[in-house]
Simulated scan of single mutants.
Amino acid sequence: MKKVGIIGGSGYIGSFITKLFLETGYQVKVSATDITREDKYQHLMLFPNTENLYISELNVTDSKQLEDFVTDCDYVIHGGTPFVLDFQDAEKELFAPTINGTINFLETIQRTKNIEKVVLIASVAGWNTNFPLPAEGKDFYDTFDETDKRFTSTESHPYAQAKFIANQVVEQFIKNNSKLSFEITSVSPVAVMGKALSNREDSTSNGLQFLIKNKIVPNDFIQFLYENDVPFAMVDVADVAQAVFKATITKGLHGKDYLLSSETYKVSDMHEMLNGREPVSSAKIVYKNDLAKRDLGISFRPVKETFRNQQ
């Protein structure tokens, strides 16, 4: 029985991934930053085959703990870092942990001999740090896919810039190590939507959906979204989990970075759908998903279905 280690496996996206691997007969090791906080991962115990589930405390900045966590795993999935909008010190809270954490993770994995595959859950910010705004030179409804040039700007949110740099770190690591004993594949979801599998309240996605559903304005960023009726490219959280699963078990995807996206709707239409009403405008395809559909065999569900499942 293969074992998969999932860093962030009790989070919003990670919970769906954990459930999927348990359902399909894998041993699953999930990281917990504080193993005494059972409220953070107790929902995982409701999944099938929990006799194959292991919870291990892990501080990802601690190389020894990280090495212990991955040492008996065949596959390792890094759930990335949650989106942080409000911060005091960008360097301390965003750039250093995101970038140095990626470097530390890759170096640790390289020392672990039995690993077959590493999957990194990156972000659309690794392709366009302006998201949900278009990349420079594009309009809101100009399409974007993996053949487009990656775009970053110092005017973008520091979180997005940090994710972009972390992606560059991964690309450079792959270039510098042409004879790795394992494959590295990345997935880059756009705005992830859908109902959570837990009652945890620390999901950025659930928080954003709540704000848009109720037209709450907690900060300038959300106010900007409303005032400009910004179009959002979205993807269902269950489809992201399916893509991660396929990327993990499929060989021959080394170095690939897949955009994961379904349809794009304006914020005003998101508000309507979250309240059980029909959108005013029709769906658009902005971030294309052809590569993920071809290589991973994913069928991305319509955004209407994603929101309907939350009613």
Results as ranks from 00 to 15, higher is better:
residue 177 N to W: 02
residue 210 F to K: 15
residue 145 D to A: 10
residue 205 S to Q: 04
residue 203 S to R: 08
residue 139 D to Y: 14
residue 178 S to F: 04
residue 177 N to A: 09
residue 191 A to N: 12
residue 144 F to R: 02
residue 164 F to S: 01
residue 216 I to W: 11
residue 180 L to V: 05
residue 209 Q to A: 11
residue 185 T to F: 08
residue 183 E to P: 01
residue 175 K to L: 07
residue 179 K to C: 05
residue 188 S to L: 07
residue 160 A to N: 11
residue 170 V to M: 04
residue 182 F to T: 06
residue 144 F to I: 13
residue 175 K to Y: 04
residue 216 I to L: 15
residue 214 N to S: 02
residue 184 I to T: 11
residue 200 R to D: 02
residue 148 D to Y: 12
residue 197 L to M: 14
residue 193 M to A: 09
residue 195 K to Q: 09
residue 193 M to W: 03
residue 160 A to W: 05
residue 171 E to A: 12
residue 177 N to D: 07
residue 140 F to P: 07
residue 172 Q to Y: 08
residue 178 S to P: 05
residue 185 T to K: 04
residue 165 I to W: 01
residue 168 Q to F: 04
residue 189 P to D: 12
residue 180 L to H: 07
residue 134 P to S: 10
residue 139 D to N: 15
residue 169 V to I: 06
residue 163 K to T: 09
residue 202 D to Y: 05
residue 162 A to Y: 09
residue 150 R to H: 13
residue 204 T to N: 05
residue 151 F to S: 13
residue 207 G to Y: 10
residue 156 S to V: 09
residue 172 Q to F: 02
residue 166 A to Q: 03
residue 143 T to L: 00
residue 198 S to A: 08
residue 199 N to Y: 03
residue 148 D to N: 15
residue 148 D to I: 07
residue 159 Y to N: 02
residue 178 S to H: 06
residue 206 N to T: 10
residue 157 H to S: 11
residue 218 P to V: 10
residue 152 T to M: 14
residue 197 L to K: 12
residue 194 G to E: 03
residue 220 D to Y: 11
residue 219 N to S: 08
residue 174 I to K: 03
residue 163 K to S: 10
residue 169 V to H: 01
residue 195 K to W: 00
residue 208 L to T: 14
residue 213 K to D: 04
residue 187 V to Y: 00
residue 220 D to H: 15
residue 211 L to W: 14
residue 206 N to D: 03
residue 147 T to E: 05
residue 214 N to T: 04
residue 183 E to G: 10
residue 208 L to V: 14
residue 135 A to N: 09
residue 195 K to V: 05
residue 166 A to W: 03
residue 183 E to A: 08
residue 201 E to Y: 07
residue 150 R to D: 03
residue 166 A to L: 03
residue 208 L to C: 07
residue 192 V to Q: 01
residue 184 I to F: 06
residue 209 Q to E: 13
residue 163 K to C: 10
residue 184 I to V: 11
residue 212 I to H: 02
residue 210 F to D: 15
residue 211 L to T: 15
residue 219 N to E: 09
residue 188 S to A: 11
residue 197 L to T: 12
residue 203 S to I: 05
residue 136 E to H: 15
residue 138 K to R: 13
residue 185 T to I: 09
residue 162 A to E: 04
residue 194 G to K: 02
residue 174 I to Y: 02
residue 149 K to G: 05
residue 153 S to K: 05
residue 194 G to I: 01
residue 166 A to V: 01
residue 207 G to F: 05
residue 205 S to I: 01
residue 175 K to S: 09
residue 206 N to M: 14
residue 213 K to P: 02
residue 193 M to D: 00
residue 135 A to C: 10
residue 176 N to S: 10
residue 206 N to L: 12
residue 173 F to I: 11
residue 211 L to A: 14
residue 165 I to E: 14
residue 153 S to T: 14
residue 154 T to P: 08
residue 169 V to E: 00
residue 152 T to K: 12
residue 139 D to S: 15
residue 165 I to L: 06
residue 200 R to S: 06
residue 207 G to P: 00
residue 150 R to A: 12
residue 193 M to N: 06
residue 138 K to M: 06
residue 172 Q to L: 07
residue 154 T to S: 15
residue 203 S to P: 06
residue 197 L to R: 09
residue 187 V to M: 01
residue 205 S to Y: 01
residue 174 I to N: 02
residue 203 S to V: 04
residue 157 H to D: 09
residue 161 Q to V: 10
